[in-house]
Nucleic acid binder design. Structure first.
Lengths: 162, 162
DNA sequence: CATTTTTACTTGACTAGTCAATTATTGATT
DNA sequence: AATCAATAATTGACTAGTCAAGTAAAAATG
């Protein structure tokens, strides 16, 4: 089990030396896994001429409903920083997938909403995305998935788990 | 018909629950965790004016020893594609951390080796990197780390775990 | 009120990554 | 040997992300 996966990771990296520590082995496995997952879903998005990151923005906006969301709020729900989100929105607006309107109540904010085109594009991606996700995570039982999420939480917030 | 109603149901779930499925929750947790880990180590590298990616190239070269490695071989041990590695090497060579010499036996290849400066820089990062890694993964017991690596392996190779 | 501080977003200058096309060299095939 | 295919690396044109600095509007303060 463990020995097997260590072996495979070593082969994958074509590395002869053992890992300096288990922690670093886990770190590399994390990087590789996320990269692989990104690649798998990017293929789906590419067919609709949006990037994975643009897709994530669209999905957040759909979750927010008709009221829309200000830019900073979108950034808060993503991994990226504000400037990156502004630039993503620039592109999405140019493609007609998102509307941006300066908020009447607070003219500093810019409210972003999905256009009809954006909603349609998202809808056509729902099936494929879900299938791909099931394919990737299907090898883990629900309890394993739960454990995985807990472990990842611990890594992100080590101070909460002494 | 059937398809539409499941879609509607899914959308309803999305509004009430934060995650449409455990798989997607795990996916997001993975993205966030890797991003956080990248940030933590980037701070260390930044003090020596190299990026995390440049550091990874240096470490691979150290692992390869005095013989050095051709560009494509470095790329093979990383997450990135060749063009990205060429550009990373451009910057590392400009900083005097890496030497590049066209290989005598096969003039298509370019052999890359660490310079003394590169070796010194790496050495001074060893301690901090290991500490940071222990801090991040310290919240997981060794058995948990093993399990984590195994789960990640399953995600990358779902077909091997039916 | 006028002034300062904070907030929301944008822009500039960078690093980094991708795919597709290009160059140089090696190897294989008539 | 002349040609054609494969391989190694690079370059071009893109997307995306970062920090730091700038703009504009709202809130807080004196």
């Amino acid at each position: 089990m463990e020995r097997q996966s260590t072996q495979r990771l070593r082969e994958e990296l074509r590395q002869t030396k053992p890992f300096p520590s288990r922690a670093q082995e886990a770190y590399l496995a994390l990087l590789r896994t996320v990269d692989e997952l990104r690649r798998r879903s990017s293929v789906l998005m590419a067919r609709h001429d949006v990037s994975l990151e643009q897709y994530n923005v669209l999905r957040i906006l759909r979750g927010a409903g008709a009221a829309g969301l200000p830019t900073l709020e979108i950034a808060g729900r993503m991994v990226e920083r504000q400037p990156g989100v502004t630039r993503l929105l620039d592109k999405l607006e140019a493609k007609g997938l998102v509307d941006r309107v300066r908020c009447k109540e607070d003219r500093r904010q810019v409210l972003c909403t999905l256009t009809e085109a954006g909603r349609t594009l998202l809808a056509s991606l729902d099936g494929p995305v879900d299938e791909s996700s099931q394919r990737s995570f299907g090898a883990l039982r629900p309890e394993a998935l739960e454990t995985l999420v807990e472990y990842l939480d611990r890594i992100r917030y080590p101070e909460l788990y002494p």
